[in-house]
Structures are given as C-alpha cells and as structure tokens.
Design a protein around this nucleic acid. Structure first.
Length: 623
RNA sequence: GGGGACGUAGCUCAAUUGGUUAGAGUACCGGACUGUCGAUCCGGUGGUUGCGGGUUCGAGUCCCGUCGUCCUCGCCA
C-alpha cells in the first residue's frame, strides 16, 4: 500500500477511533486560517472530516496555509476528541478531528468555474455551465446522492427479480429498425455500404424472441434510444427496466410490478406503498380526468352534464349535443373568488388553455351565495340549475367550468384545465417542497435544542400510483389517413374484440397497461400477440402488406409459428422513477452525463463532425 | 417548425424614465488574528453588459437581426 493511501474514508471516524492514527484521502471543501491554526474540511463521497494543523510544526503549517478549495490531499494524523463546545452534531464525524502530522498534495486545483460546495442559500450556477463541466457538477453532494439512490434502485430491482427466477439477459444495440414509433438513431455499416443498423428504441423484438426460445422470465436494465425532440422528462437515450414473462396474463405482470415497486420504495425511501394500486380503464380515466396519465394527488374530476345541457336554452350547447358531442364540467371548489369575470372572458387565463386544446370556448358559472351567476347562467331555468347543483355538488363560492364539443376535445380541454388548476391552486404539493419547508424549520428547532435534526418522513400519499388498462388498440392518424398502433404493433387485442379487427378497428381494445405515478407515465406494457395469423392481420391493418411485413419481420412471424408461448411484459422508465424518488422534475438531474435540450453533450461537444476518412470508409458523403 | 422566458465581473445577482467612472455578495490575491466549522476584520485584482447592426447628444436599458440556454406545443407506440 502506497504511503499516501487512505486508512479510512472521510465519513468513517468516530469517538472509538480516538488515539489511533489515520490517513484520509479527499478534496478540500474549505479551509479556515488562524494565526496559530488552520482547519481544513476534507471531503469525499462518504462524508466530511475536520483536520487541524497546529503552528508548532512550521513546515507543515506553511503547507496547510497554501491549501485551496478542491485540492486533492492525503492527510495523516492522530484522531482526537474535539475541544468541548466545538463538536458538530450535524455530521457523523462531528465529535472528532484529525491533528495532522503530514500532508501530501496529490493534486492542486485552480479556482473552478463554479462552486461545488452547495451551501444552503447558495444558488446553482447556470445549467449549461454545469453541463459543460459535468464532472465538477457531479462532485456536488446532492447530485452524488441522486446517483447513489439510482444505484440502490437498480440493486433492489436486480435482487427482487433474481429472487423470483428472472434472468438478466442482454440484447444487441446494433439491430433492425422496428415499425412505427419514434425516429431511429441509425448506424451506417462499413461492411455493407448503404445499409444501416438502428439503435434500439427498446429491446421489444428481442425479448419476445427470448420468450419463443423458452427463457420464460427475462429482465434487463436496458438503454433505449429515440431520435425525437427533448423535454424536461425526456432524453434521447434513456434507461428502461425491460421485463417479459411467458405463460401469464396481464394481472401477473401488474402484480409483479406492484411487488417490485413496493420493494423499491421500502428499501430506497422507507415508504410502505399500499398495494394493489388503483386501476382505471382508459375510457374511465379519459372521461374522469381528461388524461391517460392523471395526477391522482388531487380530485377535480370531470363530470358529464350532456343531458342537462341539452335541455338548456343555449344554442351552442344544444348544437354540440345534436352533433353527437358532449358537455362536461369541472367544479373548482371554492375558486369563484380566485378568478374574476374578466379573467374568465375569452383570452383570459383559463379560456386560453381551453382554446389551446381545440375547445370552442370555455363557459362558466359561479355559485355566489345560493345563486348561480356567470356567462351561461341565463340559459338554465331554475329546475335545470337545481339538477346542475346536485350533479356537480355545488356549494357557495364554487367555480363551474363547462366545455362542449366532441368527446375527445372536451376530455382533452378539461384535462388540461384540471392539470393547470391543480398546480395553480396548489391542490397538491410535491413532497420535496414539503420536505424543504420541513427541513428549514426542523434545522432551526434542532439548533435551538442542541440535538440532531429529525429527517423528513415520506408518506405513502406522496406517491399516487395508477394502472390504466383497456387501451384502444389503434388510433386514427388523420394526417396519414391510416390506423396506427396506440401501444405498439405487437400488442395483443382483447379476445372478445378479435372479430372487430377487420370491421371496426377503432373499437378493438388492447391487452395493454400503463403505470402512472403523480401524473407521469412511468411504465407501459402489454400481452403480446403470440399467433402468427393475428400478427399478420395487425400488420395488414397498419398498412403493411403481408409481403412487406414478411420482408421486414419475417423472422418474427416465423418465430411466432415456431412454438411461441403466450407472453407479455412491461417496461419501466427508470430515469423517471429516479426523478420522482429523488424529488426533481428534471431528468438531467438523474443521469450522470445527459444531453441538453438540443440533444448535445455540452461537455464532450457531441455530436461533432468526423474525419473525411471515416465517412469514406462508411460510404457516406459529407452533407 | 410554432409560442414563451432568460443572457451584465469566475459564480449568483443589482443598476430608477434612456443620463456621471456599470455596483453588491461570493470566489481569487495580499495582510491581521489561538478553537473555527460557509470563521472574522482590513485592503486589492477582476467588465467587449452573448454577438452584429440601428435609433439617440447619450444605450446594459429602446428597435431589428443573430447565437446560446431553459420551459412548452407539435413530435415521442
């Protein structure tokens, strides 16, 4: 062992080590210089230890005075008790310190582009700067904790699935483009000019083939790549927990995932999730929440009032109903005073949202005392008003919002309003906001009472899971005038809907399910088609002629008639899980080396031009 | 591709209606100092106000363009 190598990490030393000699390796967090002493806080990912340099060793003392932030050190010395009154209760090593007898500078460090110390009221540097120097940003304690959490989530997943007989199997990155879905990242072949591999959007095809091959319980923590525009919760490359099982039905997959989620939350956050999770059919969730991934931490449900509206004297409502549309409402409890009549006029905050979602206007009423007032009040005679009150559970000060039109438009518009109102009226709180508030107050109390702060306790109600089931199999793509798979083209239709496959595709429901957490889609899967004839019919419906399908996916069709067992599975978006467990809404916070919104890596500069020689080898011409 | 927000010392921010030499905190450098813990105190260095053009006696501030970052719609089974 080299003489500078550590005997302990910076988080190890306790009172029991007093009197021993120790060597620490780490980074200088900060130094505090006095005439006769220098205190140096040495930090690594395990913790923080105070090192004291005394003036009675002039050479050592001089060296200590020269140390700067983020220098890398090896420090040796004797562990000793801190003087009474100088203990720290907020860090694990706070009762001891090291009296330095030697220090080796393993690497000095110039002043850095931004601070990595993370003091409580210190604002973070701009994100693009932090992404450019990601290795420094990752040195920040909170980012280290996120990546440590991510490791623990992965570990719990692997242990959980291993204990249940699953095999972790790897599948290729260089593969073949799958039909539908996102744009592929392509990799040119050097050996076959003009031909390309596609990087996987998911291991979908391979895992089905593994089922055909008899590996009846498979999982993989797999990188997936999709060349689409980015969002706060979307990266071009991301990680899925990919799972597939044979001889099972939907419920088996859901139960497995509930057990897994409970295990992850228990072991990583100490939260006991209530299982089974809520379940709603797609049709229900769209009608009730106007979204296929509703945040169930608040109510504000959509209520149908088509029958009442059709009896009103409002022409635009009656017309909407006559055209086969619906009229639906949400009752924003107690919000009448929060939105002025002016704000509710066209162009106001809420009508703008309705308009942006293709609704033809937003109608409203307010319950002022026991009277209803507002834009459409006059069209509703008293008996109708009474029915409205009952249907919507109206109480004084409520604000009622109405949208009329086709079912899809009404759902979407009211769903968008519901989401907006949920955050605008603070109908729910993110747990990390609650935690920040708690931590500030608790720290204050703990300081006053000279005790260690009690950590914030997460509660099950901070995490509202929901299964959405019974998705439609196909959606009509109006631009391309054809049916498209809602999930993917390998999803099995419900048995009882099979007869409709050729006659009325819009009515066919899929054996598909999505997992939703606090308004985020965090997983999705299905039972797959395991019969070649059904798969061929689906390909055909999607506009792929049998010959074409044979050419592109002959291997799959062959596999399906080579003894394919019934099978199905799911994929969880692990980055989003990490986000929600770590308490952030930015996916870049849970990825060690993320891309920015333009899909660039600001640190390495990728994507970047390549040598003409490389292009030539690949048979490509510069653009 | 559309909409929105932002861009001022290394970093985080300020700068009144368009008006003096663009300030503060922090970092950094120098000095003082026996127990600090984001030490304290004193002094100092540090600016192409993203870039280009325009209006004006005068632009960080107004206008046009451009670049960059983030959020969002489209898109993403």
């Amino acid at each position: 062992m080299a003489e500078w190598q550590r005997t302990h990490t910076c988080g190890d030393l306790r009172e029991e080590h007093i009197g021993q000699t120790a060597t620490l390796n780490g980074w200088v967090l900060i130094t505090r210089n006095f005439g006769n002493q220098v205190f140096v806080d040495v930090r690594d990912r395990h913790g923080l230890t105070q090192v004291v340099f005394e003036a009675d060793n002039p050479e050592l003392f001089k060296a200590a005075n020269d140390l700067g932030r983020e220098w890398v050190l090896s420090v040796s010395g004797k562990v000793r008790r801190r003087v009474p009154g100088a203990e720290r209760i907020d860090i694990a090593t706070g009762k001891v310190e090291i009296e330095a007898t030697s220090v080796t500078v393993l690497n000095p460090c110039p002043p850095l582009p931004f601070s990595v110390t993370e003091f409580p009221d210190e604002k973070l540097a701009n994100e693009d700067l932090r992404l450019q120097y990601r290795y420094l940003d990752l040195r920040r304690r909170s980012l280290q904790q996120v990546l440590i959490l991510r490791h623990r989530i992965n570990k719990v997943i692997r242990d959980h699935l291993d204990a249940r007989g699953f095999l972790e199997l790897e599948t290729p990155l260089l593969g073949k483009s799958t039909p539908e879905g996102a744009r592929d990242y392509l990799v040119p072949s050097r050996i076959s000019h003009g031909e390309f591999f596609a990087l996987p959007q998911s291991p979908q095809l391979y895992k089905q083939l593994l089922m055909v091959a008899g590996y009846d319980r498979y999982f993989q923590i797999a990188r997936c790549l999709r060349d689409e525009d980015l969002r706060a919760d979307r990266q071009p490359e991301f990680t899925q927990l990919d799972v597939e099982m044979s001889f099972i039905e939907s419920d088996d997959v859901l139960a497995l995932m509930e057990g897994l989620a409970a295990d992850v939350f228990a072991q990583c956050l100490g939260v006991t999730l209530p299982i089974p999770f809520s379940r709603l059919r797609y049709s229900e969730v769209m009608a009730k929440y106007g979204s296929d991934k509703p945040d169930l931490r608040f109510g504000l449900e959509i209520i149908d009032v088509t029958d009442i509206a059709s009896e009103s004297e409002a022409t635009f409502l009656k017309e909407a109903v006559a055209e086969g549309g619906v009229v639906r409402a949400i009752n924003v409890k107690g919000a009448a005073a929060k939105y002025s009549n002016t704000q509710l006029k066209p162009g106001g905050e809420l009508p703008k949202i309705a308009d942006a979602n293709k609704a033809r206007g937003l109608a409203w009423m307010k319950a002022e005392g026991d009277k209803l007032t507002g834009s459409i009040e006059k069209f509703f005679p008293d008996p109708l008003k009474a029915r409205l009150r009952e249907r919507l559970g109206v109480e004084p000060a409520d604000l009622l919002l109405f949208v009329a039109g086709s079912e899809a438009v009404v759902s979407e518009a009211l769903g968008a309003l519901r989401t907006h109102l949920g955050s605008a009226l603070k109908l729910y709180r993110n747990w990390w906001d609650e935690k920040a508030e708690y931590d500030a107050a608790e720290e204050e109390r703990a300081k006053k009472e000279k005790r260690r702060a009690t950590p914030f306790a997460l509660r099950p109600e901070h995490f509202r899971f929901l299964w959405v089931t019974d998705f439609p199999m196909f959606g009509w793509n109006d631009e391309e005038k054809r049916w498209a798979a809602m999930h993917h083209p390998f999803t099995a239709p419900m048995d009882e809907d099979l007869p409709n496959l050729d006659t009325d595709p819009g009515k066919v429901r899929a054996k598909a399910y999505d997992l939703v957490l606090n308004g985020y889609e965090v997983g999705g899967g299905s039972i797959r088609i395991h019969r070649q004839d059904v798969q061929s019919r689906v390909f055909k419906l999607l506009g792929m002629e049998l010959e074409d399908a044979r050419k592109r996916f002959g291997f799959l069709l062959d596999a399906l008639q080579s003894g394919a067992p019934p099978h199905g599975g799911i994929a969880l978006g692990l980055d989003r899980w990490c986000m929600l467990l770590a308490g952030t809404t930015n996916i870049r916070d849970v990825i060690a080396f993320p891309k920015n919104q333009k899909a660039r890596d600001l640190m390495t500069g990728a994507p970047a031009p390549v040598d003409a020689r490389q292009l030539k080898d690949l048979g490509l011409k510069p653009g």
